[in-house]
Simulated scan of single mutants.
Amino acid sequence: MKILLYLEAEEFLSRSGIGRAMKHQQRALDLMNVDWTKNSDEDYDILHLNTYGPKSWKMLKTAKKAGKKVIFHGHSTKEDFQNSFIGSNFIAPFFKLYLMKFYRAADLVITPTEYSASLIRGYGIKCPILPISNGIDLAKYSRNPAKELAFREHFNLSDDQKVVVTAALYFKRKGIDDFVKVAEKMPDVTFIWFGYQNLWTVPGWVRRIVKKNHPKNVLFPGYIKGEVFEGAMTSSDAFFFPSREETEGIVVLEALASHQKAVVRDIPVYKGWLDESSASLASDINGFVDKLQEVLDGRVNRTEAGYKIAQERTIEKVAKQLVAAYQQTLNL
């Protein structure tokens, strides 16, 4: 069995959750000793599509014509396309119809959570839809003093400085507006937003938040990976993720794997796997402030329970589920 993994616009998406999910797929297949390629000129048994651009559609049609099986990875839904790029809310209904073309043509749809699976089923898709987490590499996010020092030196943070971090694109959907409003109410805490988005692709009010309309205790350093980011995940006092819509949220898994205290928005995607036993959930500005203050004061620490959730979604476990899905598809 050989898998053709395809991610259209891979360079552009490499910094996104979809890009990281693609890397996880490669790692999972390596762990299971399954042959894979990104070269469409090579022979293969299953096409695993991660994106929905015109080249992806052409790949799908070519694969079908050759009698190959096709898996489409449901990273995206109409719901998580909204409140992102300029014009995304207007385009969203048409985007849904476009996505449905891919879903209907696939032999199997893999999507990260039962919540996203339920959304796709609600579109009227009849092919099998299988929830499989994007997975997490636990070893990568274990505590490392050298990485933590690199993070604090990079931002010139004192040992006693309270720090709250997040990682996301500059989208309203990701809660960038609420992130800044919460920071305004907690001026003694440093808030760092890791991530980058071309500012000309987002609405003007988002652009202004990043450029100037934010308090001095908020930092937008752009996209940073490696030891600085990994050190931030273990060294910070809290991980705050006010996203309004996700299909899973890989960065949340990264925080849990880092034994980080997570404060997230209470949204449907977490139902059944992330709750108040393993993270702090809130729905508005005052709620976020209260939950963060509890964490910063040391009154709440759910990191061990959160880590157990990450353990349930390791790359090794996901690899077995992924290979089982491939074998299931070959037998359809």
Rank of each mutant, 00 (worst) to 15 (best):
Q327I: 09
G306K: 13
V289Q: 11
G249V: 14
E246Q: 02
L292A: 00
P242G: 11
K271Y: 11
P268W: 00
Y307A: 10
Y270N: 04
A279P: 06
I250G: 05
Y326M: 07
V252K: 07
A262V: 09
L256W: 01
L274R: 02
W273L: 09
V269C: 10
V323C: 10
Q260C: 14
E245T: 00
K317T: 07
V295D: 02
L274G: 00
V251R: 05
E248H: 02
V289L: 14
T247L: 03
T303G: 07
S243M: 03
D297N: 08
E312Q: 11
G298S: 08
K291H: 05
G298C: 11
K317M: 13
Q293E: 09
I267T: 08
K320R: 12
E312C: 12
A310T: 08
D290K: 15
V300H: 12
L322T: 15
V318I: 08
K317E: 04
G249Q: 06
G249S: 11
G306L: 06
T303L: 08
G249E: 07
G287L: 15
S277T: 12
L322F: 14
A262K: 01
A324Q: 06
D266W: 14
S243I: 01
Y270V: 09
A324I: 08
V263F: 07
T314E: 06
W273N: 04
R313H: 15
L256T: 06
N286K: 15
L322W: 08
E304F: 00
Q328Y: 15
A257T: 07
R244L: 13
Q311R: 09
K308P: 03
R313Q: 14
V295Q: 11
E316T: 12
V269P: 05
Y307C: 11
A262N: 00
S280H: 06
Q327K: 13
P268F: 00
A279H: 10
I315D: 00
T314D: 03
Q293Y: 09
V264L: 15
N301T: 04
I250Y: 03
G306R: 10
Q328D: 07
S280D: 02
Y326R: 05
D275M: 15
V323H: 05
R299P: 03
K291F: 09
L292W: 04
A325Q: 02
E294F: 12
L256E: 00
I309N: 04
G306E: 03
F288S: 14
V289R: 13
K291W: 10
T329Y: 10
P242S: 08
R302V: 03
E304W: 01
K291D: 01
G298N: 05
V323T: 10
K317G: 11
G306S: 13
Q321L: 11
L296D: 05
V289P: 11
A279D: 02
E248A: 02
K308H: 05
Y307M: 09
A319D: 01
S280A: 12
L296R: 13
V269M: 07
K308V: 09
V300W: 14
Q260H: 03
F288K: 15
E248L: 01
E248S: 04
E294S: 13
Q328E: 08
